[in-house]
Protein backbone atom coordinates (compact mmCIF):
# COMPACT_ATOMS: atom_id res chain seq x y z
CA UNK A 1 0.00 0.00 0.00
CA UNK A 2 1.39 3.36 -0.97
CA UNK A 3 1.18 5.95 1.78
CA UNK A 4 2.39 9.48 1.71
CA UNK A 5 3.13 12.07 4.37
CA UNK A 6 2.32 14.99 2.11
CA UNK A 7 -1.14 16.55 2.42
CA UNK A 8 -3.46 16.08 -0.55
CA UNK A 9 -3.82 18.77 -3.16
CA UNK A 10 -6.49 21.24 -1.98
CA UNK A 11 -9.82 20.53 -3.64
CA UNK A 12 -10.37 24.02 -4.90
CA UNK A 13 -9.17 27.46 -4.18
CA UNK A 14 -12.66 28.41 -3.10
CA UNK A 15 -15.23 26.76 -0.88
CA UNK A 16 -15.31 23.02 -0.22
CA UNK A 17 -19.00 23.18 0.61
CA UNK A 18 -21.60 25.60 -0.73
CA UNK A 19 -25.28 25.99 0.01
CA UNK A 20 -27.47 28.02 -2.32
CA UNK A 21 -30.87 29.10 -0.95
CA UNK A 22 -31.31 25.81 0.89
CA UNK A 23 -34.47 25.16 2.86
CA UNK A 24 -35.28 21.99 4.80
CA UNK A 25 -38.67 21.49 6.41
CA UNK A 26 -39.93 18.75 8.71
CA UNK A 27 -43.64 19.00 8.12
CA UNK A 28 -44.49 22.63 8.79
CA UNK A 29 -41.31 23.33 10.79
CA UNK A 30 -38.33 24.72 8.96
CA UNK A 31 -34.95 23.42 10.15
CA UNK A 32 -33.11 25.44 7.49
CA UNK A 33 -34.56 28.60 5.96
CA UNK A 34 -33.17 29.85 2.67
CA UNK A 35 -29.58 29.26 3.74
CA UNK A 36 -26.81 30.49 1.48
CA UNK A 37 -23.33 29.82 2.78
CA UNK A 38 -19.86 28.67 1.87
CA UNK A 39 -17.35 26.66 3.89
CA UNK A 40 -13.71 27.45 3.19
CA UNK A 41 -11.01 24.80 2.89
CA UNK A 42 -9.33 24.03 6.19
CA UNK A 43 -10.99 23.73 9.59
CA UNK A 44 -14.38 25.40 9.77
CA UNK A 45 -16.62 25.43 12.82
CA UNK A 46 -20.38 25.15 12.47
CA UNK A 47 -21.66 26.77 15.60
CA UNK A 48 -25.11 27.25 16.99
CA UNK A 49 -27.40 26.50 19.90
CA UNK A 50 -29.29 23.22 20.05
CA UNK A 51 -31.97 23.17 17.36
CA UNK A 52 -30.23 25.77 15.21
CA UNK A 53 -30.12 23.41 12.21
CA UNK A 54 -26.48 22.31 12.31
CA UNK A 55 -27.09 18.56 12.23
CA UNK A 56 -29.81 19.00 9.60
CA UNK A 57 -27.30 20.85 7.42
CA UNK A 58 -24.72 18.06 7.82
CA UNK A 59 -27.32 15.38 7.06
CA UNK A 60 -28.47 17.29 4.01
CA UNK A 61 -24.89 17.51 2.80
CA UNK A 62 -24.58 13.74 3.24
CA UNK A 63 -27.75 13.24 1.21
CA UNK A 64 -29.67 11.74 4.15
CA UNK A 65 -32.23 14.53 3.98
CA UNK A 66 -33.51 15.94 0.71
CA UNK A 67 -33.91 19.72 0.93
CA UNK A 68 -37.26 21.23 0.04
CA UNK A 69 -35.46 23.92 -1.96
CA UNK A 70 -31.98 24.99 -2.96
CA UNK A 71 -28.75 23.41 -4.08
CA UNK A 72 -25.94 21.85 -2.04
CA UNK A 73 -22.47 21.27 -3.43
CA UNK A 74 -19.66 19.34 -1.73
CA UNK A 75 -16.14 19.34 -3.16
CA UNK A 76 -17.57 20.89 -6.31
CA UNK A 77 -20.18 18.13 -6.83
CA UNK A 78 -23.93 18.44 -6.58
CA UNK A 79 -25.33 16.44 -3.64
CA UNK A 80 -28.53 15.70 -5.58
CA UNK A 81 -26.78 14.18 -8.60
CA UNK A 82 -23.49 12.77 -7.26
CA UNK A 83 -24.15 11.51 -3.71
CA UNK A 84 -21.98 8.41 -4.03
CA UNK A 85 -19.04 10.27 -5.55
CA UNK A 86 -19.26 12.73 -2.64
CA UNK A 87 -19.54 10.04 0.02
CA UNK A 88 -16.45 8.31 -1.38
CA UNK A 89 -14.48 11.47 -0.61
CA UNK A 90 -15.88 12.46 2.74
CA UNK A 91 -15.78 11.05 6.25
CA UNK A 92 -18.69 11.39 8.64
CA UNK A 93 -18.50 11.13 12.41
CA UNK A 94 -22.12 11.03 13.60
CA UNK A 95 -23.36 12.70 16.77
CA UNK A 96 -24.89 9.63 18.39
CA UNK A 97 -23.32 6.23 18.96
CA UNK A 98 -22.97 4.11 15.88
CA UNK A 99 -21.12 0.86 15.20
CA UNK A 100 -21.57 -2.51 13.55
CA UNK A 101 -22.68 -4.94 16.26
CA UNK A 102 -20.43 -7.83 17.23
CA UNK A 103 -17.25 -6.58 15.56
CA UNK A 104 -13.89 -5.82 17.13
CA UNK A 105 -12.65 -2.28 16.64
CA UNK A 106 -10.11 -3.25 14.01
CA UNK A 107 -12.63 -5.38 12.11
CA UNK A 108 -15.18 -2.57 12.26
CA UNK A 109 -12.81 0.11 11.00
CA UNK A 110 -11.42 -2.20 8.31
CA UNK A 111 -14.96 -3.06 7.24
CA UNK A 112 -15.78 0.66 6.96
CA UNK A 113 -12.64 1.10 4.86
CA UNK A 114 -13.77 -1.65 2.50
CA UNK A 115 -17.24 -0.14 2.27
CA UNK A 116 -15.58 3.15 1.36
CA UNK A 117 -13.72 1.48 -1.49
CA UNK A 118 -10.37 0.41 -0.07
CA UNK A 119 -9.02 -3.01 -1.09
CA UNK A 120 -9.31 -5.50 1.84
CA UNK A 121 -5.58 -5.61 2.66
CA UNK A 122 -5.21 -1.84 2.59
CA UNK A 123 -8.39 -1.41 4.62
CA UNK A 124 -7.16 -3.60 7.46
CA UNK A 125 -3.70 -1.99 7.43
CA UNK A 126 -5.17 1.50 7.58
CA UNK A 127 -7.58 0.35 10.28
CA UNK A 128 -4.60 -0.50 12.50
CA UNK A 129 -2.94 2.83 11.69
CA UNK A 130 -5.93 5.08 12.35
CA UNK A 131 -6.78 3.18 15.54
CA UNK A 132 -3.26 3.93 16.79
CA UNK A 133 -3.68 7.53 15.67
CA UNK A 134 -6.92 8.04 17.61
CA UNK A 135 -5.45 6.37 20.68
CA UNK A 136 -7.20 3.00 20.53
CA UNK A 137 -4.16 0.96 19.49
CA UNK A 138 -4.13 -1.14 22.64
CA UNK A 139 -7.89 -1.72 22.62
CA UNK A 140 -8.30 -2.53 18.95
CA UNK A 141 -9.12 -6.21 19.44
CA UNK A 142 -11.98 -5.51 21.85
CA UNK A 143 -15.55 -5.48 20.59
CA UNK A 144 -16.94 -1.98 20.23
CA UNK A 145 -19.85 -2.77 22.58
CA UNK A 146 -17.38 -3.00 25.48
CA UNK A 147 -16.00 0.50 24.85
CA UNK A 148 -16.59 3.50 27.12
CA UNK A 149 -18.33 6.60 25.74
CA UNK A 150 -15.01 8.32 25.10
CA UNK A 151 -13.64 5.29 23.25
CA UNK A 152 -16.79 5.10 21.15
CA UNK A 153 -16.23 8.72 20.11
CA UNK A 154 -12.69 7.86 19.08
CA UNK A 155 -13.73 4.85 17.04
CA UNK A 156 -16.32 6.96 15.24
CA UNK A 157 -13.48 9.28 14.27
CA UNK A 158 -11.37 6.29 13.17
CA UNK A 159 -14.09 4.93 10.87
CA UNK A 160 -14.51 8.39 9.35
CA UNK A 161 -10.76 8.63 8.70
CA UNK A 162 -9.90 5.13 7.51
CA UNK A 163 -10.35 5.84 3.79
CA UNK A 164 -8.44 9.14 4.00
CA UNK A 165 -11.29 11.49 3.07
CA UNK A 166 -10.82 14.92 1.55
CA UNK A 167 -13.42 16.39 3.88
CA UNK A 168 -14.50 15.37 7.38
CA UNK A 169 -17.88 16.12 8.92
CA UNK A 170 -17.62 15.96 12.70
CA UNK A 171 -20.96 16.20 14.48
CA UNK A 172 -20.49 17.10 18.17
CA UNK A 173 -17.29 15.02 18.46
CA UNK A 174 -16.71 15.70 22.16
CA UNK A 175 -20.19 14.72 23.34
CA UNK A 176 -20.12 12.77 26.59
CA UNK A 177 -16.33 12.83 26.94
CA UNK A 178 -14.50 13.49 30.21
CA UNK A 179 -12.23 16.58 30.31
CA UNK A 180 -9.04 14.66 29.52
CA UNK A 181 -10.66 12.71 26.70
CA UNK A 182 -12.19 15.90 25.32
CA UNK A 183 -8.82 17.61 25.33
CA UNK A 184 -7.25 14.69 23.46
CA UNK A 185 -10.08 14.58 20.92
CA UNK A 186 -9.72 18.32 20.28
CA UNK A 187 -5.97 17.85 19.89
CA UNK A 188 -6.61 15.18 17.24
CA UNK A 189 -9.07 17.39 15.36
CA UNK A 190 -6.71 20.34 15.50
CA UNK A 191 -3.86 18.17 14.26
CA UNK A 192 -5.96 16.92 11.35
CA UNK A 193 -7.03 20.40 10.35
CA UNK A 194 -3.75 22.21 10.84
CA UNK A 195 -0.97 19.65 10.33
CA UNK A 196 -2.45 16.95 8.14
CA UNK A 197 -4.09 19.19 5.56
CA UNK A 198 -7.54 17.72 6.15
CA UNK A 199 -10.59 19.86 5.37
CA UNK A 200 -13.07 19.52 8.18
CA UNK A 201 -16.37 20.93 9.35
CA UNK A 202 -16.72 20.75 13.10
CA UNK A 203 -20.32 20.99 14.15
CA UNK A 204 -20.68 21.90 17.82
CA UNK A 205 -22.52 24.02 20.32
CA UNK A 206 -19.37 24.25 22.44
CA UNK A 207 -17.60 27.51 21.66
CA UNK A 208 -14.18 26.60 23.13
CA UNK A 209 -14.06 23.45 20.97
CA UNK A 210 -14.61 25.42 17.79
CA UNK A 211 -12.28 28.21 18.84
CA UNK A 212 -9.48 25.74 19.58
CA UNK A 213 -9.77 23.69 16.40
CA UNK A 214 -11.00 26.03 13.68
CA UNK A 215 -9.91 29.10 11.76
CA UNK A 216 -13.29 29.90 10.25
CA UNK A 217 -16.72 29.74 11.75
CA UNK A 218 -20.29 29.69 10.50
CA UNK A 219 -22.77 30.63 13.22
CA UNK A 220 -26.31 29.33 12.86
CA UNK A 221 -29.44 30.31 14.69
CA UNK A 222 -33.04 29.25 14.11
CA UNK A 223 -32.24 27.70 10.75
CA UNK A 224 -30.40 30.72 9.35
CA UNK A 225 -26.80 31.82 9.06
CA UNK A 226 -26.24 34.40 11.78
CA UNK A 227 -22.57 35.13 11.06
CA UNK A 228 -19.66 33.65 9.18
CA UNK A 229 -16.02 34.39 8.47
CA UNK A 230 -12.55 33.96 9.91
CA UNK A 231 -12.72 33.78 13.71
CA UNK A 232 -10.05 36.46 14.19
CA UNK A 233 -11.93 38.83 11.91
CA UNK A 234 -15.28 38.18 13.57
CA UNK A 235 -13.83 38.72 17.02
CA UNK A 236 -12.64 42.18 15.98
CA UNK A 237 -9.64 44.11 17.26
CA UNK A 238 -8.47 43.79 20.86
CA UNK A 239 -8.91 46.61 23.39
CA UNK A 240 -12.53 47.44 22.71
CA UNK A 241 -14.06 45.00 25.16
CA UNK A 242 -14.22 45.61 28.90
CA UNK A 243 -15.28 43.45 31.81
CA UNK A 244 -17.31 45.64 34.14
CA UNK A 245 -18.88 45.07 37.57
CA UNK A 246 -20.80 47.69 39.55
CA UNK A 247 -21.22 47.65 43.33
CA UNK A 248 -24.98 47.84 42.93
CA UNK A 249 -27.46 49.01 40.28
CA UNK A 250 -26.32 46.45 37.76
CA UNK A 251 -29.49 46.84 35.70
CA UNK A 252 -29.14 50.63 35.65
CA UNK A 253 -25.59 50.29 34.35
CA UNK A 254 -26.74 47.95 31.58
CA UNK A 255 -29.51 50.38 30.64
CA UNK A 256 -27.12 53.35 30.66
CA UNK A 257 -24.55 51.55 28.53
CA UNK A 258 -27.16 50.58 25.98
CA UNK A 259 -28.57 54.09 25.96
CA UNK A 260 -25.05 55.34 25.19
CA UNK A 261 -24.84 52.92 22.25
CA UNK A 262 -22.51 50.42 23.93
CA UNK A 263 -23.20 46.74 23.40
CA UNK A 264 -23.58 44.80 26.68
CA UNK A 265 -23.56 41.07 27.28
CA UNK A 266 -24.12 39.60 30.70
CA UNK A 267 -22.05 36.58 31.73
CA UNK A 268 -22.76 33.78 34.18
CA UNK A 269 -21.19 35.82 36.98
CA UNK A 270 -22.15 39.39 37.91
CA UNK A 271 -19.53 40.72 35.48
CA UNK A 272 -20.75 42.04 32.18
CA UNK A 273 -18.87 42.48 28.95
CA UNK A 274 -19.19 45.90 27.34
CA UNK A 275 -18.19 46.57 23.73
CA UNK A 276 -17.26 50.18 23.17
CA UNK A 277 -17.24 51.69 19.67
CA UNK A 278 -14.04 52.97 18.11
CA UNK A 279 -12.89 56.20 19.71
CA UNK A 280 -14.24 55.32 23.14
CA UNK A 281 -12.41 53.77 26.06
CA UNK A 282 -12.40 52.98 29.78
CA UNK A 283 -12.70 56.68 30.70
CA UNK A 284 -16.07 56.84 28.99
CA UNK A 285 -17.33 53.90 31.05
CA UNK A 286 -16.20 55.65 34.25
CA UNK A 287 -17.94 58.85 33.16
CA UNK A 288 -21.10 56.91 32.44
CA UNK A 289 -21.07 55.23 35.86
CA UNK A 290 -20.41 58.55 37.60
CA UNK A 291 -23.29 60.19 35.76
CA UNK A 292 -25.57 57.37 36.94
CA UNK A 293 -24.21 57.55 40.49
CA UNK A 294 -22.83 54.03 40.30
CA UNK A 295 -19.62 52.72 41.79
CA UNK A 296 -17.53 50.48 39.54
CA UNK A 297 -15.76 47.70 41.46
CA UNK A 298 -14.15 46.03 38.49
CA UNK A 299 -13.11 47.33 35.07
CA UNK A 300 -10.62 45.43 33.02
CA UNK A 301 -9.81 45.45 29.30
CA UNK A 302 -10.50 42.06 27.80
CA UNK A 303 -9.88 40.20 24.55
CA UNK A 304 -12.85 39.56 22.30
CA UNK A 305 -13.80 35.87 22.31
CA UNK A 306 -15.85 33.60 20.12
CA UNK A 307 -18.46 33.74 22.84
CA UNK A 308 -18.84 37.45 22.10
CA UNK A 309 -19.19 36.71 18.38
CA UNK A 310 -21.77 34.05 19.15
CA UNK A 311 -23.71 36.26 21.57
CA UNK A 312 -23.77 39.08 19.05
CA UNK A 313 -24.77 36.78 16.19
CA UNK A 314 -27.63 35.02 17.91
CA UNK A 315 -28.76 38.17 19.68
CA UNK A 316 -28.29 36.98 23.26
CA UNK A 317 -28.23 39.55 25.95
Amino acid sequence: MAETDTPPVPVAAGDVVTLQSVSVAYGKNYALRDVTAGFKAGAVGLLGPNGAGKSTMIKSLLGFIVPTAGQLRVLGMDVATSPLEIRARIGYMPENDGHIPGMTAVAFVGYCGELAGLPPTDAIQRAHEVLYYVGLGEARYRTVETYSTGMKQRIKLAQALVHDPDLLFLDEPTNGMDPKGREEMLELIRDLGHNKGMNLILCSHLLPDVEYCCDHVVVMDKGRIAADGPITQLKGPAGRVFEVRAKSGHDRLVAACRAAGFECHETDEDVMRVFVPEGFGAQDLFKLATREGLQLRHLRPSLPTLEDVFARAVGEE
Binding site: M1, A2, E3, T4, D5, T6, P7, P8, L84, A88, Y111, E114, L115, G117, L118, P119, D122, R126, E129, V130, Y132, Y133, G137, L161, H163, D164, D191, L192, K196, G197
Partner: peptide, 22 residues
Protein backbone atom coordinates in the same frame (compact mmCIF):
# COMPACT_ATOMS: atom_id res chain seq x y z
CA UNK B 1 7.78 4.03 12.82
CA UNK B 2 5.51 7.05 12.78
CA UNK B 3 2.13 6.13 14.19
CA UNK B 4 0.65 9.48 13.23
CA UNK B 5 -1.93 9.98 10.51
CA UNK B 6 -0.78 9.31 6.96
CA UNK B 7 -2.58 9.92 3.71
CA UNK B 8 -3.57 6.98 1.54
CA UNK B 9 -1.90 6.89 -1.85
CA UNK B 10 -3.08 3.50 -3.08
CA UNK B 11 -5.79 2.63 -5.56
CA UNK B 12 -9.44 2.28 -4.64
CA UNK B 13 -11.86 -0.38 -5.74
CA UNK B 14 -14.55 0.42 -8.31
CA UNK B 15 -17.90 1.38 -6.82
CA UNK B 16 -20.80 -1.04 -6.70
CA UNK B 17 -19.18 -3.84 -4.68
CA UNK B 18 -20.45 -2.63 -1.30
CA UNK B 19 -23.12 -5.34 -1.24
CA UNK B 20 -20.40 -7.96 -1.68
CA UNK B 21 -18.44 -6.53 1.27
CA UNK B 22 -21.58 -6.68 3.44
Amino acid sequence: HDQGYRHFGGTREARGRGWLVI
